[in-house]
């Protein structure tokens, strides 16, 4: 009886903790929605990006004289790019925020609060990422819809694609957290942040589906964590294959665990170096 009671209390405590972070996520979403027009006007550049993609791929398909390239029709290709771009442009720069907090000392304030700093940031990240994703998709999707018609998605591919996108955001956050927390030791982490974002952009399949990569590079990109951030979820959206989806989710889960463990280790070691002075 006592053991059951303890288990129940533990579950209650875990739920209370989860509730705290869900509340943070909700507040972030509401804040972002309050400034929805401001957010959308900042994202108008997506129109230019999508317009240029349309010109590039229309020319490529016409020049190749092919109905399908790398297994993608032109409609699938452009929606792939629209979804990839929407995800990429909605990913908050968590590493830069953590870096600032560590350098400015704002992290010391967070340590006194009744939450775990990395999980607090994760909730905030997800709130901003989700609102950004749908905002970007509304703009990018409009351009692509006008150019090539409606998205090649079904209810199932959208649901599974969205699930995989949530895991991709989680993976991106924890990878960024590990880089950002390195500010405890490194003088300037901005070159590493830039390197990560560019590797993610190129080897993640944001600009080009991995199927169009040379075979050797494709294998490497498909294995790396960055390869699970765009290509996996976006391909699920536009061209669902259940075995591939299973593989993507499995790889995403493994890499998330690796980066959560790494970020937690770096955080614990870093916090021990924090020197709080009154004043």
């Amino acid at each position: 009886m006592i053991e059951v009671g303890r288990g129940g209390q533990g579950r209650l405590r875990a739920l209370r903790h989860l509730g705290k972070y869900l509340e943070m996520l909700r507040i972030t979403v509401l804040t972002a929605l309050t400034y929805a027009y401001d957010m959308l006007s900042r994202q108008l550049f997506v129109v230019i990006v999508m317009f240029v993609f349309v010109q590039l791929w229309k020319t490529t398909y016409r020049w190749e004289g092919a109905a399908s390239i790398g297994g993608y029709t032109m409609r699938q290709m452009l929606w792939y790019l629209a979804l990839g771009e929407s995800m990429a442009m909605s990913m908050p720069r968590a590493a830069a925020e953590i870096d600032d907090d560590v350098r400015s000392g704002a992290l010391a304030y967070a340590l006194t609060k009744p939450y775990k700093y990395p999980w607090f940031l994760y909730a905030k990240y997800m709130g901003n990422a989700l609102t950004g994703f749908f905002g970007n998709l509304a703009i990018a999707g409009t351009v692509i819809w006008i150019a090539v018609g409606p998205p090649p998605v079904t209810a199932l591919s959208f649901t599974l694609g969205f699930l995989s996108a949530l895991l991709a955001y989680a993976l991106d956050f924890w990878a960024q957290a590990a880089i950002g927390l390195s500010a405890f030791w490194i003088e300037d982490a901005s070159p590493y942040r830039l390197l990560y974002s560019r590797v993610k952009m190129l080897l993640g399949g944001m600009l080009l589906p991995l199927e169009l990569f040379p075979e050797g590079l494709r294998r490497i990109a498909a294995f790396l964590p960055t390869g699970q951030i765009f290509h996996g979820p976006v391909k699920t959206f536009v061209s669902l294959s259940l075995p591939e989806f299973g593989g993507t989710v499995a790889k995403q889960s493994v890499w998330i665990l690796v980066f959560v463990a790494l970020a937690s280790m770096v955080y614990r070691a870093g916090v021990r170096r924090v020197n709080v002075q009154g004043g």
Partner: peptide
């Protein structure tokens, strides 16, 4: 590195096309 990554995209693209 940033420029090199963008150029790499084009090198991959022109390898395929």
């Amino acid at each position: 590195v940033n420029d090199a990554m963008w150029l790499s995209f084009w090198l991959i693209y022109f390898t395929r096309f």
